[in-house]
Simulated scan of single mutants.
Amino acid sequence: MAQVLHPDGDSVAEALRHAKPSTLTRLVSAYFTHSEETTRLCLLLHRSVHRARAMYHPLHRLLQVLPLNHHLSGSQCDAAFDAFLHFDKFHNPFPPPGSHNFQEMRQCFSQLRHKLNQRLHKSRSRIRLARRATLASALCVVGSTVAIAASAVVIATHALAAIVACPFCTTAAYLPANNNNFLTRKEAAHVKQLDAAARGAYVLNNDLDTIDRLVARLYDAVESDRYLIRLGLERGKEVYTVTEVMKQVQRNQVNMMHQLGDLEEHICLCFNAVNRARSLLLQEIHLYQTPSSS
């Protein structure tokens, strides 16, 4: 985790330690926790890829030298049978489709995205309300000033009547505009943090969906080869059976290696997505905690 997760858990904990307890802080903290768990899950899958390659290595090495266009010799059959035994010692390195880990993580991100979007909508509504109040206050100040100036040209009594006729403007003119501006800046900072977390949750949820599908295909492919290898072991060192099993493994080889490489690539992309989202969110937290943003 220390080698692949950036910023690390200690940096996140230090930043959140200075944040006031709130719904926003809890949601942001939940995102950091879920993203860390995603990294841990991807690390386990990365090890699964290495175990799968070790599992297939003797078989694939033999395929480079065995003449499968005709029956194998006794020594070649023995070598293939030994590779079968090596392969059969391994369990399937990939979790089965619909495994608990994937379902739990995807459900966590789905629920978190829903809560983040709700809080994001609330913050944006507050910003719009504060800006409307500030605009109304400014317009009423201007309107009252113009009304007083125009009335002063006629007579003072008419000016008083104009002000009394627009009590809502005089009231709005004394709204705490500075307080509205402060609330707007505060909520804008919240929006940036929420948006960074929501975007990160969306990307990671999609990444997990893709990785889940790749893992499911690899699990099925390995199970198919395990069944095939066991069939060869049950028949003993029968030349025809061993040859046919190796031919089938050869047919599956390109697809298997391609799928392993594809999964490894998506795991690396997920690592990058996690770190990028965590860095952006932590940056927004630090900006909000600076004196200029408070």
Rank of each mutant, 00 (worst) to 15 (best):
E187T: 12
T184P: 02
L183W: 04
D220H: 12
L160R: 00
F182I: 13
A189D: 13
F182P: 00
P167F: 13
T210F: 06
N180A: 06
R226V: 15
F182K: 07
N180I: 04
A189W: 04
R185N: 09
D220I: 12
L214G: 10
L160D: 07
H190G: 15
V222T: 05
D207F: 04
L160N: 09
R226K: 14
V215K: 06
C166K: 09
R199Y: 08
R185M: 10
L175M: 09
A156P: 01
A177I: 14
F182Q: 12
A165P: 01
D212L: 01
D209A: 02
R199A: 11
S224C: 08
R213M: 09
L218I: 11
A172W: 11
A162F: 06
V191E: 12
T184R: 08
L208Q: 00
H190W: 09
A165D: 09
G200D: 04
R226L: 13
L183R: 01
L183E: 09
K186F: 13
I163N: 03
A177Q: 11
F168C: 11
A177N: 08
D195Y: 12
I229C: 05
R217S: 06
R213S: 13
Y174G: 07
R213E: 11
E223S: 15
V215T: 15
V222E: 11
I229L: 03
A165G: 08
A165F: 04
E187S: 14
T210I: 08
A216H: 06
N178R: 07
A196V: 09
A198G: 03
Y174R: 07
L218N: 05
L183K: 02
Y227Q: 13
L204Q: 11
T170W: 06
T157N: 06
R213P: 00
P176F: 02
Y202Q: 12
V203C: 02
L183V: 14
A177V: 15
A221R: 08
V203N: 05
A172K: 07
I211Q: 01
A201Y: 00
D220R: 04
D209Q: 00
Q193E: 15
I229Y: 03
N180E: 06
E223M: 07
I229P: 00
N181I: 10
A172E: 10
A216Y: 09
E223I: 10
